[in-house]
Amino acid sequence: MQTTTANKSVFDVKDLNLWYGSFHALINLNFSMYKNEVTAIIGPSGCGKSTFVKTLNLMVNMIPNVHMSGEINYNDKNILNKKIDLVELRKQIGMIFQKGNPFPQSIYDNVAYGPRIHGIKKKKQLDEIVEESLKDVALWDEVKDRLQSAALGLSGGQQQRLCIARALATKPEVVLMDEPTSALDPISTLKIEELITKLKEKYTIVIVTHNMQQAARISDKTAFFLNGEVVEFSDTNQLFSNPSDKRTEDYITGRFG
C-alpha cells in the first residue's frame, strides 16, 4: 500500500472499528486522506463504504445502536473523542448525499441557510456568499435571474449542484460525497465530475462511488472496501492498472460486485 503525496493529511484513520449492534460493519481501518486531493471509496454494495464516509462527520451517530473504537484524526484531533463540537466539525466538513435534497425554499435561501444560522446577517455579505458558492458549482449563470424561485423546481442535476453550493457556503475544508451522481443522468454526472476536479483546488474531497470508471477519472487515491475491510489503498492509477491484491483485481475487472 504505497502512496505518493506531497500534501499533508487531513484525516488519519487508525484502527477504526464500527458495530451496528452486534454486526461488525467496519473492521480495523487504517488509511489517510490528503489535503486538496480526491479520495475515492469503491466496493460492492454493503461493504461499508457509506458507513465509513458517515463516520468522518459523525452523521453515523444518528443511527441507533452504533458504537466505534479506534481513532479518526481530523487535522490531528481525534473526532471520536466525546468532547468534540459537532456543530464546528460539520461546518468544516460538508456532506453531499445520494439524492439532491434541497430544502423546500427558494434557491437563495437554500444556499444562505448555513451561513445565516451560523451568524451572518448582513444582506450584502450573504449575497456575496450565495453568488460565490453558486459560481463555484457553475450554477450561477443558470439561476441568477430566479434566485427567489423554488429550489425544487430545478432539474435533478441542478438540485445536486445546488446542494454542493449549500455545503460550500459554510466554507468547509472537506467535502464528503456519498454516491453523488447515482441518481443522475450521464450529462449531469459529467458536470458534477468536472466540478469535483475543479473543487479539489480549494477543498479536500472524499467520494463514495459505485462507478469504477468515475473513481478512475476523478480521484487521486482510491480505497477498495470489501466486507468492512480496506483491501487496498493506493494511488488511483496504480490501483486500477496494477492492483496488488487478487480481490481488487477481480473486482475492478468485473468478476464480482
Binding site: M59, R90, K91, Q92, I117, H118, R166
Partner: peptide, 11 residues
C-alpha cells in the same frame, strides 16, 4: 434527507 442535510451543515 432534509433533516440530514441540515444536520450535516452543522446546524
Amino acid at each position: 434527507e432534509q433533516k440530514e442535510a441540515s444536520l450535516a451543515l452543522g446546524i
